[in-house]
């Protein structure tokens, strides 16, 4: 039982990171129609932004986190201006290849800048544990789950209670109508990319202490976030959260109870089953078209 609680918390923490990556993926997809194949590298960049400020820069924790997230926001704006804007009227495949190209560029830029030797990003709760029903649970895992829950709550408020968030949803649902209503469509789309980059940054900063900061960490994250969105329902925010937690939990619990070699089989097997049997995912589409 103690083992199970410990694994459960670690699985939820890892799942939270996947969920945040998947949320960034989903809000970009719903607002811009872009399938962002660089989403995993966004998270990697978040981790290395933390490496740059906290490890190499030696900044204090709050300054390091804020600096890394500010850099991610800037990166999101840059991505909007350099990749999205020039390609926004091109065929979808061109845009996808654009994001793949940026993903590869980011990965190799990180290799060039930081080298292939992994870094250790220290948690603010390094070495701290709590005892839950006999299980030793790292405080970092709890902090990750709580931070993610708070962020999801803030996102819910943004999208349901603020004019900015409702305007972002309007842009996602009908770009032409949004322009005719006089919404600042360009600024709203830019903000969507910035938000996705900052969420990926938070995910990267939280993941750093759980894994090693390795320039190749982006690819597995992208695959897991992608599986999470398929399982949860492509384009659905609750789906991204549920899917992310499912993938994280199966990875950790599968490694412990089934086989560490086949730990990814459960998540990706589930993804394939969903594609075959229920391609709209658990949460499907909330919006329906009237016939």
């Amino acid at each position: 039982m103690a083992d199970f609680i410990q694994l459960l918390m670690n699985g939820l923490a890892l799942g939270s990171v996947y969920a945040l990556a998947a949320i960034g993926f989903v809000i970009v997809y719903s607002a811009t129609g872009v399938v962002n194949f660089a989403a995993g590298q966004f998270v990697m960049l978040g981790t290395f932004a933390g490496v740059a400020t906290l490890v190499n820069g030696g900044w204090s924790l709050p300054a390091g986190y804020l600096g890394a997230l500010a850099a991610m926001a800037l990166f999101g704006a840059l991505f909007y201006a350099v990749v999205y804007l020039p390609l926004r009227n091109s065929p979808a495949v061109t845009m996808i290849i654009g994001t793949v190209a940026i993903g590869i560029t980011l990965q190799n830029a990180a290799l060039l800048g930081f080298g292939s030797w992994p870094f250790r990003l220290v948690s603010p709760f390094e070495g701290m544990t709590v005892d839950i029903a006999g299980a030793v649970v790292p405080v970092h895992a709890i902090a990750v789950v709580v931070t993610t829950a708070v962020l999801i709550g803030l996102l819910w408020l943004l999208f349901n209670r603020t004019t900015l968030g409702i305007a972002m949803r309007a842009v996602a649902q009908d770009l032409v109508a949004a322009r005719l209503m006089g919404l600042k469509v360009g600024a709203l789309l830019a903000f969507t990319w910035i938000l996705a980059a900052v969420l990926a940054g938070v995910a990267g900063l939280m993941l750093g202490p759980m894994w090693f900061a390795d320039v190749n960490m982006g690819d597995p994250i992208a695959l897991k976030a992608f599986a999470a969105t398929i399982i949860g329902g492509f384009g659905s925010l609750p789906g991204a959260i549920a899917g992310g937690l499912f993938v994280g939990l199966t990875e950790v619990l599968g490694a412990a109870y089934v086989s560490s070699a086949y730990k990814d089989l459960i998540a990706f097997g589930a993804m394939i089953l969903f594609l075959l049997l229920r391609p709209q995912g658990v949460f499907g589409e909330r919006i329906q078209d009237r016939g």
Partner: peptide, 9 residues
């Protein structure tokens, strides 16, 4: 044309 109501709002 086609009204273009935001369907999810």
């Amino acid at each position: 044309e086609g009204r273009r109501i935001f369907p999810g709002l």
